[in-house]
Structure formats: structure tokens, C-alpha cells
Write a protein that binds this DNA or RNA. Structure first.
Length: 486
RNA sequence: GCGGCUAUAGUUCAAUGGCAGAACACCGGUUUGUGGUACCGGGUACGAGGGUCCGAUUCCCUCUAGCCGCCCCA
């Protein structure tokens, strides 16, 4: 008994109605007819076809999920702060396709990365094109930049984009095959002040969403020049400790030695601890760049942690790399990340264009918002319910509803229902302040009953005075009473 | 990609080798034109496919999905 009560209470405190995440449903097809079919003579082949016809699973594909109306409050909040942020910081929106030719990603992100080697959604189209669902935005942005000759635009060019990205990975909470990212890129400038500004922008967005316990991890992995020397040093170091490395890292030694630094295996971490660090082997230019970046961040009062072992899973990065972590109870999730990619545009065939960008994982931001119990802005909801009774009143109230809407008054209704009782029950559940009631009598008289839902008092008013009266009452009751006009 | 746990109603959870149950939610009713409380009634579920068995939601296998750990990242 007590247990049941506690449960109910716990349930009531839940803000967003959750929906089962693991329940597949299927539509049963033509079950009734199956007997008939076997009675009528049907070829064995056809019969088999009917029996083995795939049941339609009422289940989203693996790792993909719906964002239900109950979740949209969170999403609205995110959209709102992203829209503010990108405008305030002078970004222009760009939308790029969800599909690109596969080799665009291969060339930019690079072989030897998990994204390319294991997680790409590639397929061949009817026209025999090799395409892939985008695993990230930057490659497309770079392609669009080159394709549309954006190099002639005044620099820096700041581009904002948001949408879904795809990685064929094993799903877990907060790790989906389809997830949403917001992406910011600044092209055409190499000054570290932009690196700093971009990181501050990320920090502003996250602060604005009231997400707590966030760390900015920063590193510099140098430019191709100094990295080449550093990689030689690093490789020979790891080569000398090869026997102490895990299986994966032995492979990484050939494919992507930088990533060994990132390995979480104990023995590899021990080896890595003694490894040469990229920030100690930067060329003059890269060292200066990094130094200034840190100074700017200090000036902007953006707290950061230098992580010499931070290496990103994409090969196009140069100099600055950073990741945004949420840290709680010893666990960390990445909320976003990015870095400078001064060589990418040129690699893809454009003219040499320095650039920097980052992406935020929106589904993860929402996870964090839920965890930190972020307060949500309430959406304007109807404060009036229109109830009708009888055929004539139904007709008239349909018109009344539209008149109220024109007057900017949000109204709820359930015209499909007959009984006044159930309509008022709904009105009550919606928490409206007033109910308008129109029955046969009122419809004939050209009047409407206004009922105050908290006191129960009601009065009959002529229709033509209704809109003005409602506005007056709503205003008196305070809050924003009328929907803002477009 | 690897390892583990799980799958029963819209939700949270029971029970059971032989008709599957509760709570909450939903819909309707309690004088045909008045909500909240109360009372009454109603619909809806064994993830899919095989196997063992007279009989499987229950035992076994396969698949699928979710969750956890690893890996990876957002």
C-alpha cells in the first residue's frame, strides 16, 4: 500500500511523460483472412509468401528515436539559445545536405579514424553513386565553401548549421545512431583570437542553458610541420615500449599513433604518461598561437583545462583542439568538441583557408538539462475553453473559435465531444481560467456563457461584447493574456 | 565492434507449464445543459521466429530492441 502510494507520488513529480523505449509493436495483417486463404486453393509458393510476409514492427530503427511533444520544451529552449547565439556572434546560417559523396568524408576526416573505418552509413544509390549519411558537418561546410566560391566573401566567414548526423555505432543512452548537432565554423582567419571567441561562444551557450559541471579541455596538436617531427618522436617512443601496449594500440602504432595517448587501458595510460607531449614540441608559430589562445581565454574568463593527451577522432585538425565535457560522479560525457582545421580546405582542392569550428551534441545537452533539472520556460497555453452543446451551437461555436483566434485569443476546445460534462472535465484538466459555454438557447439568443473555472461563477453575455470582455478579464488576471501578433 | 542484463496494457510493475492481474493514465456513465472529489463501467499487453511439450507468456535456441560496461565520440 505504502509502496504503491510512493510510486504514484514519484510519478507525479515527473515532468515529462516518458514513453516506453523498448516495446516493439506490430500491426497484425489480415489475420481474419488467413483461414480463408488456406481454404481457397492457393499455390504453395504464394502461401509461403503470405506466411513469411514481414510483420511491420512498430519500432523505430535501431539507435534512432522520436522527439515527442513532451520533450519539445527542452528543444525549444535549445533552439532559442542557439538562434540567439549565432546571431549575436555574427554567424550566418547554412544548411547542407544530409548526404554527401562518401569520399568527401573519407578525404576530410581521414582513414584510420573510427568514424570512417567503422561508423559510416555508406550506400550505393540507384545511379551507382557512393554516398554516405553525414557523420558530421565540417566536411560539408568545407565542400560548400569551395563549391560556391565563398573565398571571395569578406573574411572571416562565420557559418552556423544544425541538423541530424549519423554514426553506425552501438547505441546506448546518450549515444544514438541519429543525433542532432549544432555546428559553428569560422573560415578565413588564423588569428587565435577567433579560437578564443569560438570557445567562449560554446561556453556562453552552455551557461545559458544552465548546465552545470562542465569542463573545457584544450590542447594543441600543432601544424603538419611540427607534428611530423613530433609524430616521429612519439612513434619511436611507443615503438620502444611496444610490448607494453594493448592490442588496439599496437595497431594504432601504424595507423594513428596519436590516438594511443587517448587509450584508456591502464597499461597504455602508463606508457602514455611518459610519452613526449605535443605542446612541448610545437614549432614557434604553433606555440605562439597556443600561448595567445590561452591568454585570450584568461581575458575572457573562460575556465579551461589543458589536456596534453586530448586528441580528436578526426584527422583534419591542426593546432587548437578542444572538447567540452560534463563531469559528474567520476563519469564524463562529451557534450561537444572542435578545433582548428587550417589545411582542410586546401586538402579538398580549395585555396589555402585557415578555419576553426566546433559542434555541440544537442541530445546530450538535453540529457544534461534534465539531469541538472533545468527550469523550462513555459509555453503560452490556452486560458480559455470553448464548450458547445447541440448541433446548432456546434456550428456557431466553430465560427466563434475562429473569431477568437483572429482576435488573438488562444482557445482550447473539444468539438468532437457531445456531453458538456466531458468537455468541462477536459477544460479543467487543461487548467484554463474560463470556460465559454454555448448551448441551444445561447446559440439562438446570440449569447455565450462565461464561466470562471476557479469560482464557478458564470454570466451570460452577448456575443458581440465577448472578445472585448475576455481580453479585459485576461488582462486583469495578469500574465500575457493575448498571443502576440505576428 | 566486444562482453553482460532485460523485454507482460499508454505508463510503472505483478503472477503463472493449463482463462494474464493491479495501480496510475485514457474513454464513458452516475436525472437527458456544468469540471475538480467519490462511485460504477469499458478498451488495450505476454517483442519476433523456431524448438521441447498434450499444452509455452513461463523452459531452450535464434533474431530484434533497450539498458549497463568496454570502445568511441556528440
Amino acid at each position: 500500500m505504502a509502496k504503491g502510494k510512493a510510486k504514484t507520488k514519484a510519478k507525479k513529480t515527473k515532468k515529462v511523460k516518458t514513453v516506453s523505449k523498448r516495446k516493439p509493436k506490430k500491426i497484425k495483417v489480415a489475420k481474419k483472412n488467413s483461414k480463408k486463404i488456406s481454404v481457397i486453393s492457393v499455390s504453395a509458393n504464394e502461401k509461403k509468401k503470405i506466411q513469411t510476409e514481414d510483420p511491420i514492427l512498430m519500432q523505430s530503427p535501431r539507435g534512432m528515436h522520436d522527439i515527442l511533444p513532451g520533450e519539445q520544451l527542452y528543444w525549444n529552449q535549445i533552439r532559442k539559445s542557439l538562434n540567439h547565439a549565432f546571431l549575436e556572434y555574427g554567424f550566418q546560417r547554412i544548411d547542407v545536405p544530409i548526404l554527401e559523396y562518401s569520399n568527401l568524408f573519407v578525404r576530410s576526416i581521414g582513414k584510420g579514424t573510427d568514424i570512417i573505418d567503422k561508423e559510416m552509413y555508406t550506400f550505393v544509390t540507384k545511379g551507382r553513386d557512393n554516398v554516405a549519411l553525414r557523420p558530421e558537418f565540417t566536411a560539408s561546410i568545407a565542400r560548400a565553401y569551395i563549391q560556391h566560391g565563398m573565398n571571395i566573401l569578406p573574411k572571416p566567414i562565420k557559418l552556423f548549421s544544425t541538423g541530424t548526423v549519423y554514426r553506425y555505432d552501438r547505441p546506448q543512452e546518450g549515444r544514438y545512431r541519429e543525433h542532432r548537432q549544432a555546428n559553428f565554423d569560422i573560415l578565413g582567419e588564423q588569428d587565435p583570437v577567433l579560437d578564443a571567441q569560438l570557445i567562449q561562444l560554446a561556453s556562453r551557450i552552455i551557461d545559458g542553458l544552465k548546465i552545470k559541471n562542465v569542463q573545457f579541455q584544450i590542447n594543441s596538436i600543432g601544424c603538419p610541420k611540427c607534428r611530423e617531427e613530433y609524430l616521429e618522436l612519439l612513434t619511436s617512443y611507443f615503438e620502444s615500449k611496444r610490448h607494453k601496449l594493448c592490442h588496439n594500440c599496437k595497431k594504432r602504432l601504424e595507423s594513428n599513433p596519436l590516438r594511443i595517448l587517448d587509450c584508456k587501458e591502464d597499461k597504455c595510460a602508463q606508457v602514455s604518461a611518459g610519452a613526449p607531449q605535443s605542446i612541448d614540441h610545437l614549432c614557434d608559430e604553433c606555440r605562439t598561437h597556443f600561448k595567445y589562445l590561452l591568454e585570450y581565454l584568461d581575458e575572457l574568463e573562460v575556465p579551461y583545462i589543458i589536456n596534453p593527451r586530448l586528441v580528436r577522432g578526426l584527422n583534419y585538425y591542426t593546432k587548437t583542439v578542444f572538447e567540452i565535457w560534463s563531469v559528474e560522479e567520476g563519469k564524463k560525457h562529451s557534450l561537444g568538441g572542435g578545433g582548428r582545421y587550417d589545411e582542410l580546405i586546401e586538402t579538398l582542392g580549395g585555396e589555402s583557408t585557415p578555419a576553426i569550428g566546433f559542434a555541440l551534441g544537442l541530445d546530450r545537452l538535453i540529457m544534461e538539462m534534465k539531469r541538472t533539472k533545468v527550469k523550462l520556460y513555459k509555453e503560452s497555453k490556452p486560458r480559455i475553453f470553448l464548450a458547445q452543446l447541440g448541433e446548432l451551437a456546434k456550428k456557431k461555436s466553430l465560427k466563434l473559435f475562429s473569431d477568437l483566434e483572429k482576435g488573438g485569443i488562444l482557445t482550447a476546445e473539444s468539438f468532437g465531444r457531445g456531453s458538456l460534462r466531458s468537455q468541462l472535465r477536459t477544460a479543467n484538466r487543461l487548467g484554463v481560467e474560463m470556460a465559454l459555454i454555448m448551448g441551444q438557447k445561447e446559440a439562438l439568443d446570440g449569447t455565450v456563457i462565461i464561466k470562471n473555472m476557479s469560482s464557478g461563477a458564470q454570466e451570460t453575455v452577448p456575443r458581440e461584447k465577448l472578445t472585448a470582455l475576455i481580453k479585459k478579464i485576461l488582462k486583469k488576471n495578469n500574465v500575457v493574456s493575448v498571443r502576440p501578433k505576428k
